[in-house]
């Protein structure tokens, strides 16, 4: 019966498998899908990723290279993961619908300064003031093909300064690396992980501090806390920072500037003591 059934069925003639992404060369580059979009083929993507990785290690101040590295390594997988994290959350979905942008126009620094003392907005602006940066210092996304994912990348980048404000980690290499490790654990964006290689540029004492204090903090808090990409910062400006940090499940790391300052203090005292003792011995 079974074999009879087999032959009774129509001889089906065509089985096709469609694949959506077609390769292209430089000569027939497809049109951009959003303003500023630069479609890359697989070869260009890999080359750009490798090139920008090497160059940004040599010069971590080249924000454009870090941006390119972030974008080329986020596709095709990781940026979708981050977008899906947003699509799974009511606030994340609202952000994707509204697509708010953080610029000096939408985030008026003067207004922020007038906010309550321990509020998110105030922490953000005092962080901007302390580090001497502005909301406009972020590059536009170019190399991510999906238009919605490009926005997700842009949002992540623009919110980065809020992460500094939330964690209190400073902008110099040590703080930046600790924050990147936290972001990696939280967003899984590869570039944030790659940036951790910048520890090679740290002083030995900093490196020890990183391994013993900041990396464990970053990993455990990044993994345990909620997806920070789903914070609608524009709506949280008046919120108490500690309150928000609690809601997200993030513990504040030891303040790096304080640590550095007190370490310097320790060293100075030790030196003075040594000098004094040296002086004694000289007698």
């Amino acid at each position: 019966m079974a074999s009879r059934k087999l032959f009774a069925l129509p001889a089906l003639v065509r089985v096709t498998i469609a694949r959506s992404a077609r390769p292209f060369s430089v000569l027939n580059r497809p049109p951009p899908r959003y303003e500023g979009h630069v479609p890359l083929n697989a070869f260009e993507r890999v080359t750009l990723a490798a090139g920008s990785a090497v160059m940004s290690l040599m010069n971590p101040r080249r924000g454009d290279l870090i941006a390119a590295l972030g974008e080329t390594t986020a596709t095709p997988f990781f940026i979708y993961r981050l977008r899906d994290a947003m699509l799974s959350n009511p606030t994340g979905r609202r952000i994707l619908r509204d697509r708010p942008r953080i610029t000096s126009k939408t985030m008026s620094v003067t207004k922020l300064r007038a906010l309550p003392e321990n509020g998110v907005g105030r922490a953000y602006v005092s962080w901007l003031d302390r580090e001497g940066v502005s909301p406009d210092t972020r590059n536009s996304v170019k190399y991510i093909d999906d238009e919605e994912c490009a926005y997700v990348m842009q949002r992540y980048r623009e919110c980065h300064d809020f992460y500094h404000a939330l964690t209190g980690l400073p902008v110099f290499v040590e703080g930046e690396v600790a924050l990147k490790a936290f972001e990696f654990a939280n967003t899984l964006l590869p570039m944030t992980g790659l940036s951790v290689f910048a520890i090679t540029r740290m002083k030995p004492a900093e490196r020890i501090r990183f391994w013993n204090t900041y990396l464990p903090w970053a990993v455990s808090n990044g993994l345990k806390s909620k997806d920070i990409i789903n914070v609608y910062w524009e709506e949280e400006l008046e919120r108490d920072v500690d309150d928000l940090r609690n809601e997200l499940g993030i513990k504040r790391p030891p303040d790096l500037r304080d640590t550095r300052r007190s370490l310097r203090e320790h060293k100075r005292i030790a030196r003075e003591k040594r000098d004094m003792m040296g002086g004694l011995r000289a007698d």
Binding site: L9, P10, A11, L12, V13, V15, I17, A18, S20, A21
Partner: peptide, 15 residues
């Protein structure tokens, strides 16, 4: 992007 299509000719019996 993994999809599969089955098509019977009009001269054949339906699926």
């Amino acid at each position: 992007n993994s999809r599969i299509s089955f098509d019977a000719l009009t001269s054949e019996p339906p699926i």
